[in-house]
Design a protein around this nucleic acid. Structure first.
Length: 403
RNA sequence: GUGGGAUUAGCUCAGUUGGUUAGAGCACUGGUUUGUGGUACCGGGGGUCGCGGGUUCGAAUCCCGUAUCCUACCCCA
């Protein structure tokens, strides 16, 4: 039997109900915040991700579905959504047009990782990107929007907050940190030695106790911010507090993608295992420029839909639509015709086999229909149809022309 | 990529030291004398026990390999 590839799942039935419920809810919130839908290709030039996400990241370094297409292009399936949106933004010359542009998207992302709970090779993200707004109010708005979506879905979370600094303060901090870690290099774990090379900031959240002890005296990111970053971060905290958003400061919170600066945030859940990050984002003021656009401030976030699926509290499902059936063979054609007419305005399920009333009621109940409509010998004779409301249990016989 | 656990019906799982035709609950389907649903009772269909080797008179059960899932690490949404 041919099976789906490892880490790639089908979404159907109840999963699909939850999936679309989330997309619809998140879309509604995004539109209320003034964001517009954008769809970008699943396949992009590999260079796009090398330049944006960064070659030092694991995502680009070892997790991309990368191949050469029939036109000899080096391409890959997108491992995240921001790069494509930024590329589209520049390609449509919106950077030169100026002004504010706000987008949201959702779709499949691909990373060749070892699957586990909350981690698939093809997974789905819902994300938003805002271009042209320099204000820290926009950062706060992003966080409030994420919070709104989660709340609307009945999902509890903790919000972790950090500032990564900008090109004025980050390089100095990184140099200081590398210097500090290099001095105690003999005591640190293998992973940290590697991180020192690839992504030094990541040593800070190493899970190894020995490393953590050594890093106790390490320089702290938040203490090294320049004046601009410092005051923005203070302002951000105030805005969130004013708007009733609780947060925790996590000086070790680091985004895995190279393009982030200043505000970084992550929403985590304690109920879904070790892959606990359900949403993450931050500011990326330099990315448009990196990708050859005119310098444009930007901020965004993405949510992992599969991780949210089991946390979503679905509204109670209500009885809906019509079930139509016949008790006599000769009424089946009539019943099919009525079904087609009714479908102009209603959800209708038609049973093609003649059955007794009891079985029709069972069938209508099983598909959660609101009305069970049946035509038997009496109805054929009178030109009527029997209709029962399965909620109120009231029933009536009406003329076909009034149905 | 590394370590640990699992894999028996559509689903959740039993299956006693290896021994006839592998079971249950739920789900599905039909019936309980012919026009009243969700509950009750009775019946029915459905499994080459993940896949491939091996040990044995005999394997769902023991051994090896492999795939997938779960889980921790790693990474991240």
């Amino acid at each position: 039997m041919v099976k789906s590839l490892r880490g790639m799942n089908d979404i159907l039935s109840e999963d699909y109900e939850r999936f679309t419920y989330f997309i619809n809810t998140a879309t509604d919130v995004a539109q209320k915040y003034g964001f517009h839908f954008i769809e970008t290709p699943l396949l992009e030039e590999t260079a796009l991700f090398k330049r944006s996400v960064g070659e030092s990241s694991d995502i680009v370094g070892k997790e991309m579905y990368q191949f050469t297409d029939k036109g000899e292009n080096d391409v890959c399936l997108r491992p995240e959504g921001t790069a494509g949106v930024v590329r589209a933004f520049i390609q449509k010359k919106l950077d030169k047009a100026g002004g504010v542009h706000r987008f949201f998207y959702h779709g499949s992302m691909f990373r060749y990782e070892r699957p586990q709970k909350g981690r698939l090779r093809q997974f789905h993200q819902f994300g938003v990107e805002s271009f042209g707004v320099d204000s820290v109010y926009e950062d706060a708005t992003m966080i409030m929007m994420t919070s709104d979506i989660l709340k609307r879905c009945g999902i509890g979370y903790r919000l972790q907050l950090n500032s990564l600094g900008d090109q004025n303060c980050m390089p100095d901090y990184k140099a200081n940190l590398v210097k500090f870690v290099t001095e105690c290099k003999d005591g640190i774990c293998e992973d940290c030695v590697r991180r020192l090379d690839t992504n030094p900031i990541r040593v800070l959240d190493c899970k190894n106790d020995k490393c953590q002890t050594l890093y106790e005296g390490a320089p702290k990111l938040l203490n090294s911010l320049c004046d601009g970053c410092e005051s923005d971060f203070t302002k951000l905290k105030k805005i969130l507090t004013d708007n009733g958003i609780a947060y925790e400061i996590d000086t070790n919170l680091v985004r895995g993608l190279d393009y982030y600066s200043k505000t970084a945030f992550e929403f985590v859940s304690d109920n879904i295992g070790s892959q606990s990050a359900i949403a993450g984002g931050g500011r990326y003021d330099r990315l448009v420029e990196f990708l050859d656009g005119r310098p444009t401030p930007a901020v965004g976030f993405a949510m992992g839909i599969e991780r949210l699926m089991e946390l979503i509290v679905m509204p109670e499902s209500k009885r809906e639509g019509y079930y139509i059936g016949a008790m006599d063979e000769e009424a089946i054609d009539l019943v099919v015709r009525l079904t087609q007419e009714k479908r102009g305005s209603q959800k209708v399920i038609c049973e093609f086999k003649a059955k007794n009333l009891k079985n029709h009621l069972k069938g209508a109940d099983k598909i959660n229909a609101k009305f069970c409509c049946v035509i038997g010998t009496n109805e054929i004779k009178d030109g009527t149809i029997w209709v029962k409301d399965l909620e109120s249990k009231s029933e009536k016989v009406i003329l076909l022309k009034d149905f």
